[in-house]
Simulated scan of single mutants.
Amino acid sequence: MPTPSRRLEHLTSAIFTEMAQRKREVARKRDVIDLGIGSPDKPPAPHLMEALAQAVNRPDVYGYPGSEGSSAFREEVAAWYRHRFGVALDPEREVHALMGSQDGLAHFALAWADPGDVVLVPDPGYPIYAGSVYLAGAELYPMPLVAENRFLPDLSAIPEEICRRAKFMVLNYPNNPVSAVAPLSFFDEVVRFAKRHGIIVAHDLAYSEMAFDGYRPPSFLQAEGAMEVGIEFNSFSKSFNMAGCRIAYVVGNAEIIKPLAIVKSNVDYGVFAAVQEMAVAALRADRSGHFPNPTGALYQERRDVLLKALAEIGWRIDPPKATMFVWAPIPAGWDSRSFAFALLERAGVVVIPGNAFGAQGEGYVRMALVQEPHVLAEAARRIGESGVLQARSAERDV
C-alpha cells in the first residue's frame, strides 16, 4: 500500500482527538460541560432562516453558482464594509465569496506560497494558519504572541533574512485563541512593515461583530495604505450563527485576491445560491438597523457570568474585549495539557490546552463561551470543587 503525502504529518490534531476520546470516556460516568470547540450554539435569526427557506423553494437557485459569488452578494458585502468600516470596495474586483473563511485561508497559501518561501504565522494561532503553509510546502516562521506585548507580534524582532524570504503574514484580530484585540495604530505599523519588505498581509476578521463594552473592532483595511498590501477574510459563521452554511468572503487588493480566485475556480463551483441570498439578507438587515446584531451582547453576558464565577473560586482572568473565547492562564505547577485533562476528569469540563495552538500557548487554556450563562456558572462551580486550581507539585498526569 502506498504511503500518504508527508504533508499530513503536519496536520495532526492529536490533542483535539485525544480530548474528544477522553470526553466520551468521562461522559459514560457523568455529564460533561463542553467549552472546547468554538461552534456557535444558537441558530440564525428567524428572518435569516426565512430568507433561506424562501430561496430554497425557488427553482432557479440549483445551478452551479460560480466560485466568485453572485453580483448581489458581492455588492452587499461592499455596501456593508462601507457602512461598518468606511472602507470602499469594488464589488467586481475586490470582493470574492468563500466556502467559509477556513476554506479561503487554506487556499490562499496554495495561491501564493511555494517551497522555499516563508510565511509569518502567529503563535499561538488558529490551526489552519500553520496547516495551510505546510499544505503549500512552504516554511513557517512563528510570530510569538505574548502577554507582555498585549499579544501583538513584535515585528522588529523578525530577522532581516526571514523578512527577505517572507511571502505573506497572517494576522487575526480579534484573536483566536488569545482573545486579544489590535488598535488601528498597530495596523498602521503592519502596513509600513509590509511595504518595507514587500510582504502581503492576510488578516482574519472572523470575530468582527463579537465585541463587548462598546468596543468596535477595526478592519485592517482602514489603515492607510492597507489596500496596497493586504486582504481581509470575514465570515458569517460567528457573527450571524451561520457556521454550517459555509459562507464567507475575502476583500481587499484585487491583484492579491486574483491568484486565490484562480485556485478557487479550479476546486469548487461556489456557495449554494440560496445560502448567498441568506447572507445578503443578514448584511442588509444589519446595515438597516431593523435587526440589530445581538451577538456581542449575547457573548458579553456569558463572558461576565463566567469570569465572575471563576473569580469567586479564586481564578481571576482579564476580561477579553471580543471573541467567543476566554484565554485563561493556568495555576502554577501545571502544564496546559495536564491541566485540561484534570479539568475534564475531575470537574467534567472540557477546555482546550493552549499549546494545541502553538508553543507559545503553553501555560494557558482556551474556554469557549458556547453554553448558556447558568451552565457556565455551573462549570465554574465544578472547577472550584475539583481542587485543580491548587498549585501542582509532584503529581503524575491525570
Score class of each variant (00 low, 15 high):
6 R>I: 12
12 T>N: 10
12 T>V: 11
12 T>K: 11
14 A>C: 05
14 A>E: 12
15 I>K: 00
19 M>S: 14
20 A>S: 13
21 Q>C: 06
21 Q>N: 11
23 K>C: 13
25 E>L: 15
27 A>V: 11
28 R>I: 09
28 R>V: 11
29 K>N: 04
33 I>K: 06
41 D>R: 05
44 P>T: 07
47 H>V: 09
47 H>N: 11
49 M>R: 13
52 L>P: 01
55 A>I: 05
59 P>F: 03
61 V>Q: 07
65 P>E: 02
65 P>C: 04
68 E>I: 14
68 E>W: 13
68 E>Y: 12
68 E>Q: 15
69 G>K: 01
71 S>E: 15
72 A>L: 14
74 R>T: 03
78 A>H: 00
80 W>M: 04
80 W>T: 00
81 Y>A: 10
82 R>C: 09
83 H>E: 08
84 R>W: 12
84 R>Y: 11
85 F>A: 05
86 G>E: 07
86 G>H: 06
86 G>F: 08
86 G>I: 11
86 G>P: 08
87 V>F: 08
92 E>C: 03
93 R>K: 15
93 R>H: 15
97 A>D: 07
98 L>E: 07
104 G>N: 00
105 L>H: 02
107 H>D: 07
109 A>G: 04
109 A>I: 00
110 L>N: 02
110 L>R: 06
110 L>V: 00
114 D>H: 12
115 P>K: 06
116 G>S: 07
